[in-house]
Amino acid sequence: MSVKATVISEIQQIADDNKKSLPPLADDLVLLDSGLDSLAIAILVARLEETLGFDPFTESDDVAYPVTLGDFIRFYEHAAESHGVDSRQVG
């Protein structure tokens, strides 16, 4: 699965856990408007760390917090590259 597909799959899982329906997961969707609150986003980051093996937020003290889903996915794709992971095929 690609990084993008992994992110989307985890988002859908968290929405299912919370019995929430999601709007279409387009790149320009504002994360906080996706139906996920900051707690859910925190859980998403934790689960992605379990799945992907890294957490790009904690790898530097200088991060720009992602606003849209597209920002978020690119953030993880860049981190995957710096970890030498092919972002199209991670798991």
Binding site: L32, D61, D62, Y65
Partner: peptide, 28 residues
């Protein structure tokens, strides 16, 4: 900072409390 409206405010004083303030949020 994850909100598109973050730029709506331009405070001259920002205060954090209630949790550990890590270097990441202070820098951001």
């Amino acid at each position: 900072l994850m909100s598109p409206e973050a730029g709506a405010i331009a405070p001259s004083y920002i205060r954090l409390s209630g949790e550990i303030a890590d270097q990441g949020i202070l820098n951001a």
